[in-house]
Design a protein around this nucleic acid. Structure first.
Length: 439
RNA sequence: CGGGGCGUAGCGCAGCCUGGUAGCGCGCCUGCUUUGGGAGCAGGAUGUCGGAGGUUCGAAUCCUCUCGCCCCGACCA
């Protein structure tokens, strides 16, 4: 992509309304713009990140055996009356009427809908277990939206629902999701700690929240220091069993008296909730009559669990966990582009030629490159590139080019090296996988 | 919903108290000079002062209403 033609409106000055780093940086990096309170338009650069996260979440859901569906955003109030939640949910639920004065709502979550889908088709224990997921926009009419996308009213969420014949099956589904979540967050480049938590309005007795550690997190969490190894482990070496048994708890659930972790191994931090998994048994299947015939011929309400990942919130959470004074530092797995190619002297035949050669070669190799071909001063281009946080910067300028070298800078470490054009191409094509992400 | 704050050029702000017909920085346009970390000089464009009503000879400024946004609290992926 050539920056000169790309819709990427960066801001030099910090917008006043934004208080936390992710909100400021998302506005300054031209990722989102406010439409109305808690509701945002995703601009091209931000949308690329959102899509990248979505892809990883989707891949890990499929790997764990869940199947994708897409349910409507607008739902009928009748279904919610069946579960009893139409009256319970309160003002967070956006209620609307259609032209026939029928009561509708914009879904804040989808247990009722999925239970309805399930009960229509599944009648026997032989068809269990099932696990269905979707990635869909939700709306919760928060009393006070804040922190940009972090706490918006409209948000993109992956939600899935497991159906099992008995409690043991349900726990098994739960465990699979636990593992899928650890894998998902690890791939997204963040450390997410699974903490015991209240299951809130949705109900149930087995429930964990996944929190990305960041100073601006909304809740306080306590956890075993061993979780910090997550940061340094690759996927293959994740020891799920060990992680499942480590201690972590939200502030409300943490009791220093009974905590099994020695004080010197107990860490305290703030976290951003990006995922929530819980088992809730027959809370919906019973009132909504989602039953199957068991081996003995009796009707049994199915055992359910539900599992959420805040996809749009993750964009902000990742930035909270990965930025510096100059801007965003994208983990490579979610970066909107792998490389930012800066031509410092647009119009100069030598830098133009070298830049175009690199741009073409990398594109041919399927590496995602944002080529800054704008005719601006060096300082602005460096500042913009640091702000938008692409993992690698390739700088083509007179200084190094006079020695037939190109400068390559790692955004995260700040380390630079001078390479020949061919070495640059080799460096990035060798480490590239098919979808254009650097490894 | 309760408490506080703010809406003036694309962005960040001053002007408001004490009414006299709108300004600064950045950005934008033109030209020249500059060219590896948000350039310099010269010239230029841009505002129904959030909206409606009122007071007044005269309102960005005073009064009333209204809309929007932000912050603190209870609530939440």
């Amino acid at each position: 992509m050539r920056w000169s033609t790309y819709f990427l409106p960066t801001l030099k000055e910090v917008p006043v309304e934004a208080q936390i780093p992710s909100h400021r940086l998302m506005l300054r990096a031209g990722m989102i713009c406010l439409s109305s309170s808690g509701i945002y338009t995703w601009l091209p650069f931000g949308l690329r990140v959102l899509k990248n996260i979505e892809t990883i979440v989707r891949e890990e859901q499929e790997r764990a055996g869940a199947q994708e569906v897409l349910m409507p955003t607008i739902q009928s109030a009748d279904l919610w009356r069946e579960s009893g939640r139409y009256d319970d949910y309160g003002k967070e639920m956006l209620r609307i009427r259609d032209r026939h004065e029928r009561e509708m709502l914009y879904g804040p979550t989808n247990e009722e809908l999925i239970t309805d889908v399930f009960r229509r088709f599944v009648k026997t224990y032989r068809d269990l277990p099932k696990n269905l997921y979707q990635i869909q926009w939700k709306f919760r009419d928060e009393i006070r939206p804040r922190f940009g996308i972090m706490r918006g009213r409209e948000f993109l969420m992956k939600d899935n629902y497991s159906f099992d014949i008995d409690k043991e099956g349900a726990y098994n589904s739960y465990r699979k999701m636990f593992e899928a979540y650890l894998r998902t967050f690890a791939r997204l480049g963040v450390v997410a700690i699974p903490v015991k938590a209240d299951s809130g309005a949705i109900g149930g007795d087995m429930s964990q929240e996944f929190h990305v550690l960041a100073e601006t997190g909304e809740s306080k969490v306590f956890y075993d220091v061993a979780f910090e190894e997550l940061r340094h482990k690759d996927l293959a070496s994740l020891d799920i069993e060990k992680l499942r048994n480590l201690y972590a708890a939200a502030e409300e659930k943490h009791d220093p008296q009974t905590c099994p972790v020695a004080p010197e191994n107990l860490k305290e931090a703030r976290g951003i909730e990006v995922g929530h998994i819980f088992y809730f048994g027959t809370k919906y299947s019973e009132p909504m009559k989602a039953t199957v015939t068991g081996e003995d011929g009796q009707l049994i309400p199915v055992e359910m669990g539900s599992y959420g990942i805040g996809v749009s919130r993750l964009v902000a959470a990742i930035i909270e966990a990965s930025h510096d004074a100059a801007g965003i530092i994208w983990p490579e797995s979610v970066a909107p582009f792998c490389i930012g190619l800066i031509n410092l002297k647009v119009g100069n035949p030598d830098t133009d030629k070298a830049s175009e050669t690199l741009y073409d070669a990398l594109q041919k190799e399927n590496v995602e490159v944002l080529y800054d071909d704008r005719d601006l001063r060096a300082g602005s281009k460096f500042a913009d590139m640091d702000l938008i946080g692409l993992p690698w910067q390739i700088v083509v300028g007179g200084r190094s080019l006079s020695m037939n070298k190109i400068e390559v800078k790692c955004r995260k470490t700040g380390l630079r090296e001078d390479l020949s054009i061919n070495e640059v191409i080799k460096k990035f094509t060798k480490s590239t996988i098919s979808d254009g992400k650097c490894v």
